[in-house]
Write a protein that binds this DNA or RNA. Structure first.
Length: 255
DNA sequence: ATGGCCTGCAACGCAGGA
Protein backbone atom coordinates (compact mmCIF):
# COMPACT_ATOMS: atom_id res chain seq x y z
CA UNK A 1 0.00 0.00 0.00
CA UNK A 2 1.40 3.35 -1.04
CA UNK A 3 0.48 6.49 0.90
CA UNK A 4 1.47 9.97 -0.22
CA UNK A 5 1.04 13.56 0.93
CA UNK A 6 1.44 16.82 -0.97
CA UNK A 7 0.81 20.46 -0.20
CA UNK A 8 -0.31 21.56 -3.66
CA UNK A 9 -0.70 25.32 -2.99
CA UNK A 10 -4.00 25.58 -4.93
CA UNK A 11 -5.61 22.47 -6.37
CA UNK A 12 -7.04 24.59 -9.18
CA UNK A 13 -3.58 25.48 -10.45
CA UNK A 14 -1.98 22.14 -9.64
CA UNK A 15 -4.73 19.76 -10.84
CA UNK A 16 -2.83 18.68 -14.00
CA UNK A 17 0.21 17.92 -11.87
CA UNK A 18 -1.88 16.02 -9.33
CA UNK A 19 -3.37 13.89 -12.12
CA UNK A 20 0.13 13.27 -13.48
CA UNK A 21 1.31 12.29 -10.00
CA UNK A 22 -1.53 9.75 -9.76
CA UNK A 23 -0.56 8.27 -13.12
CA UNK A 24 3.16 8.10 -12.42
CA UNK A 25 3.27 7.16 -8.73
CA UNK A 26 -0.04 5.29 -8.49
CA UNK A 27 -0.56 5.94 -4.79
CA UNK A 28 -3.38 4.10 -3.03
CA UNK A 29 -3.97 7.20 -0.92
CA UNK A 30 -2.95 10.79 -1.62
CA UNK A 31 -3.42 13.48 1.04
CA UNK A 32 -3.59 17.05 -0.23
CA UNK A 33 -3.20 20.32 1.65
CA UNK A 34 -3.88 23.93 0.68
CA UNK A 35 -6.49 23.03 -1.90
CA UNK A 36 -7.79 26.61 -1.45
CA UNK A 37 -11.25 25.85 -2.82
CA UNK A 38 -14.78 25.43 -1.57
CA UNK A 39 -16.25 21.92 -1.73
CA UNK A 40 -18.64 22.95 -4.53
CA UNK A 41 -15.63 23.67 -6.74
CA UNK A 42 -13.76 20.44 -6.05
CA UNK A 43 -12.72 18.80 -9.37
CA UNK A 44 -14.43 15.48 -8.66
CA UNK A 45 -15.04 14.65 -12.35
CA UNK A 46 -11.37 14.79 -13.29
CA UNK A 47 -10.31 12.80 -10.24
CA UNK A 48 -13.00 10.17 -10.80
CA UNK A 49 -11.94 9.88 -14.43
CA UNK A 50 -8.41 9.13 -13.18
CA UNK A 51 -9.78 6.18 -11.21
CA UNK A 52 -9.78 7.78 -7.77
CA UNK A 53 -12.35 8.66 -5.16
CA UNK A 54 -12.12 11.80 -3.08
CA UNK A 55 -13.16 13.23 0.25
CA UNK A 56 -12.55 16.90 0.91
CA UNK A 57 -13.00 19.73 3.36
CA UNK A 58 -12.26 23.07 1.77
CA UNK A 59 -12.84 26.78 2.05
CA UNK A 60 -12.37 29.83 -0.12
CA UNK A 61 -8.83 31.24 -0.60
CA UNK A 62 -7.09 29.56 2.35
CA UNK A 63 -6.34 26.11 3.77
CA UNK A 64 -8.41 23.13 2.58
CA UNK A 65 -7.57 19.41 2.73
CA UNK A 66 -8.55 16.36 0.72
CA UNK A 67 -7.80 12.66 0.44
CA UNK A 68 -7.79 10.90 -2.93
CA UNK A 69 -7.93 7.11 -2.83
CA UNK A 70 -8.33 3.95 -4.88
CA UNK A 71 -10.64 2.33 -2.35
CA UNK A 72 -13.60 3.73 -0.52
CA UNK A 73 -13.11 5.89 2.57
CA UNK A 74 -14.73 4.68 5.79
CA UNK A 75 -15.41 6.57 9.03
CA UNK A 76 -14.70 10.00 7.52
CA UNK A 77 -14.08 12.76 10.06
CA UNK A 78 -13.43 16.45 9.35
CA UNK A 79 -11.39 18.48 11.81
CA UNK A 80 -10.08 17.56 15.25
CA UNK A 81 -12.64 15.94 17.53
CA UNK A 82 -13.56 18.34 20.34
CA UNK A 83 -11.81 21.37 18.78
CA UNK A 84 -14.08 23.85 17.03
CA UNK A 85 -11.72 25.38 14.45
CA UNK A 86 -13.31 27.23 11.50
CA UNK A 87 -10.15 26.66 9.41
CA UNK A 88 -10.29 23.52 7.27
CA UNK A 89 -7.06 21.77 8.18
CA UNK A 90 -7.84 18.14 8.97
CA UNK A 91 -9.60 15.26 7.27
CA UNK A 92 -9.40 11.62 8.33
CA UNK A 93 -10.66 8.30 7.03
CA UNK A 94 -9.93 4.58 7.03
CA UNK A 95 -8.76 2.83 3.86
CA UNK A 96 -8.47 -0.97 3.83
CA UNK A 97 -7.93 -1.05 7.58
CA UNK A 98 -5.39 1.78 7.67
CA UNK A 99 -6.41 5.01 9.37
CA UNK A 100 -5.10 8.08 7.55
CA UNK A 101 -5.22 11.59 9.00
CA UNK A 102 -4.39 14.39 6.58
CA UNK A 103 -3.18 17.51 8.41
CA UNK A 104 -2.33 21.06 7.43
CA UNK A 105 -0.72 22.49 10.54
CA UNK A 106 -0.79 26.31 10.80
CA UNK A 107 2.22 28.21 9.50
CA UNK A 108 2.60 30.61 12.42
CA UNK A 109 3.90 33.52 10.31
CA UNK A 110 6.48 34.78 12.86
CA UNK A 111 7.18 33.79 16.47
CA UNK A 112 5.92 37.23 17.56
CA UNK A 113 2.63 36.76 15.71
CA UNK A 114 -0.81 35.83 17.06
CA UNK A 115 -0.76 33.17 14.36
CA UNK A 116 2.20 31.55 16.13
CA UNK A 117 0.15 31.29 19.35
CA UNK A 118 -2.70 29.80 17.31
CA UNK A 119 -0.22 27.28 15.87
CA UNK A 120 0.98 26.17 19.31
CA UNK A 121 -2.58 25.93 20.61
CA UNK A 122 -3.61 24.03 17.49
CA UNK A 123 -0.74 21.57 18.03
CA UNK A 124 -1.89 20.90 21.60
CA UNK A 125 -5.41 20.24 20.30
CA UNK A 126 -4.03 17.92 17.63
CA UNK A 127 -2.06 16.03 20.26
CA UNK A 128 -5.21 15.46 22.33
CA UNK A 129 -7.08 14.32 19.23
CA UNK A 130 -4.34 11.94 18.11
CA UNK A 131 -4.12 10.36 21.53
CA UNK A 132 -7.73 9.24 21.14
CA UNK A 133 -7.32 8.22 17.49
CA UNK A 134 -4.36 6.02 18.36
CA UNK A 135 -6.41 4.13 20.93
CA UNK A 136 -9.14 3.60 18.37
CA UNK A 137 -6.93 2.90 15.36
CA UNK A 138 -3.59 1.19 16.08
CA UNK A 139 -2.77 1.20 12.35
CA UNK A 140 -2.50 4.97 11.95
CA UNK A 141 -0.65 7.36 9.63
CA UNK A 142 -0.70 11.11 10.28
CA UNK A 143 0.56 12.86 7.20
CA UNK A 144 0.75 16.34 5.79
CA UNK A 145 2.31 19.76 6.02
CA UNK A 146 3.48 20.13 9.63
CA UNK A 147 5.21 23.47 9.08
CA UNK A 148 7.90 22.27 11.51
CA UNK A 149 11.45 21.22 10.74
CA UNK A 150 12.19 18.79 13.59
CA UNK A 151 15.99 18.76 13.64
CA UNK A 152 19.09 20.63 12.47
CA UNK A 153 19.58 18.21 9.60
CA UNK A 154 16.11 19.15 8.29
CA UNK A 155 17.19 22.74 7.60
CA UNK A 156 19.75 24.00 5.08
CA UNK A 157 21.18 26.52 7.55
CA UNK A 158 20.24 25.81 11.19
CA UNK A 159 22.12 28.88 12.44
CA UNK A 160 20.17 31.17 10.12
CA UNK A 161 16.89 29.54 11.09
CA UNK A 162 17.55 29.30 14.83
CA UNK A 163 14.56 30.62 16.79
CA UNK A 164 12.60 31.38 13.63
CA UNK A 165 9.11 30.12 12.89
CA UNK A 166 9.13 26.54 11.49
CA UNK A 167 12.30 25.86 13.48
CA UNK A 168 11.71 27.31 16.96
CA UNK A 169 12.10 25.24 20.11
CA UNK A 170 8.40 25.33 21.15
CA UNK A 171 7.38 24.02 17.72
CA UNK A 172 10.01 21.29 17.82
CA UNK A 173 8.90 20.32 21.34
CA UNK A 174 5.30 20.11 20.14
CA UNK A 175 6.42 17.86 17.29
CA UNK A 176 8.32 15.63 19.71
CA UNK A 177 5.23 15.41 21.91
CA UNK A 178 3.19 14.21 18.94
CA UNK A 179 5.82 11.56 18.18
CA UNK A 180 5.92 10.55 21.86
CA UNK A 181 2.26 9.50 21.68
CA UNK A 182 3.55 6.43 19.86
CA UNK A 183 4.66 7.43 16.37
CA UNK A 184 7.83 7.50 14.40
CA UNK A 185 8.94 9.82 11.63
CA UNK A 186 8.62 7.56 8.59
CA UNK A 187 11.38 9.36 6.74
CA UNK A 188 13.93 8.56 9.45
CA UNK A 189 13.18 4.84 9.45
CA UNK A 190 15.56 4.65 6.48
CA UNK A 191 18.93 5.95 5.36
CA UNK A 192 18.34 9.18 3.48
CA UNK A 193 20.48 11.55 1.49
CA UNK A 194 21.86 14.56 3.33
CA UNK A 195 20.07 17.83 2.64
CA UNK A 196 16.73 16.10 2.06
CA UNK A 197 14.01 18.74 2.13
CA UNK A 198 10.32 18.95 1.23
CA UNK A 199 9.86 22.70 0.82
CA UNK A 200 11.89 25.41 -0.93
CA UNK A 201 11.05 29.12 -0.93
CA UNK A 202 9.82 30.53 -4.24
CA UNK A 203 11.36 33.89 -3.47
CA UNK A 204 14.99 33.01 -2.94
CA UNK A 205 15.11 30.62 -5.88
CA UNK A 206 15.53 28.16 -3.03
CA UNK A 207 15.12 24.96 -4.98
CA UNK A 208 17.93 25.62 -7.43
CA UNK A 209 20.18 26.80 -4.62
CA UNK A 210 19.37 23.82 -2.37
CA UNK A 211 17.94 26.08 0.33
CA UNK A 212 15.12 24.01 1.76
CA UNK A 213 13.41 22.70 4.87
CA UNK A 214 11.88 19.32 5.64
CA UNK A 215 8.47 20.29 7.01
CA UNK A 216 6.16 17.72 5.39
CA UNK A 217 6.03 14.51 7.37
CA UNK A 218 4.46 11.08 7.64
CA UNK A 219 4.12 9.90 11.22
CA UNK A 220 3.49 6.17 11.52
CA UNK A 221 2.11 4.33 14.53
CA UNK A 222 4.24 1.42 15.76
CA UNK A 223 1.78 -1.02 14.19
CA UNK A 224 2.29 0.56 10.76
CA UNK A 225 6.00 1.35 11.10
CA UNK A 226 6.67 -2.38 11.48
CA UNK A 227 5.46 -2.89 7.91
CA UNK A 228 6.90 0.26 6.34
CA UNK A 229 9.20 -0.63 3.44
CA UNK A 230 10.28 2.79 2.21
CA UNK A 231 9.83 6.52 2.60
CA UNK A 232 10.86 9.05 -0.02
CA UNK A 233 10.46 12.68 -1.04
CA UNK A 234 9.55 13.13 -4.71
CA UNK A 235 11.82 16.16 -5.08
CA UNK A 236 11.65 16.13 -8.89
CA UNK A 237 8.09 17.42 -8.61
CA UNK A 238 9.54 20.68 -7.33
CA UNK A 239 11.51 21.05 -10.58
CA UNK A 240 8.40 21.03 -12.81
CA UNK A 241 7.03 24.08 -14.55
CA UNK A 242 4.81 26.10 -12.26
CA UNK A 243 5.54 23.86 -9.26
CA UNK A 244 4.05 23.85 -5.80
CA UNK A 245 6.66 25.06 -3.33
CA UNK A 246 6.30 21.67 -1.58
CA UNK A 247 7.33 18.24 -2.86
CA UNK A 248 5.27 15.11 -2.17
CA UNK A 249 6.33 12.59 0.50
CA UNK A 250 5.49 8.89 0.12
CA UNK A 251 5.62 5.66 2.13
CA UNK A 252 5.14 2.05 1.12
CA UNK A 253 3.46 -0.21 3.66
CA UNK A 254 3.49 -3.97 3.29
CA UNK A 255 -0.05 -5.26 3.68
C1' DA B 1 19.08 43.09 1.56
C1' DT B 2 13.51 42.12 7.37
C1' DG B 3 12.91 41.47 0.30
C1' DG B 4 13.05 38.41 -3.57
C1' DC B 5 7.67 34.83 -5.59
C1' DC B 6 3.12 32.51 -6.03
C1' DT B 7 -1.97 32.37 -5.33
C1' DG B 8 -6.63 34.11 -4.70
C1' DC B 9 -9.65 37.88 -4.54
C1' DA B 10 -10.78 41.59 -6.31
C1' DA B 11 -9.70 45.54 -8.44
C1' DC B 12 -5.26 47.95 -10.41
C1' DG B 13 -2.85 46.22 -4.28
C1' DC B 14 -3.73 43.41 -0.65
C1' DA B 15 -3.28 39.02 2.69
C1' DG B 16 -1.10 34.80 3.43
C1' DG B 17 2.16 31.41 2.71
C1' DA B 18 6.90 29.46 4.97
Amino acid sequence: MKLATWNVNSLKVRLPQVLDFLTVQKPDVLCLQETKMEDEKFPLMEITAAGYRAIFSGQRTYNGVAILSRSEAADVIMGIDGYDDPQKRVIAATFDGVRVICVYIPNGERVESDKYQYKLHWLSQLRAGLKQELLKYPRLAVMGDYNIAPEDRDVHDPKLWQGKVLFSEPEQSAFKELVALGFCDGFRLFDQAEKSYSWWDYRTNGFKRGLGLRIDHILLSAELAKYCKSCAIDRERRAHDRPSDHAPVMVEIET
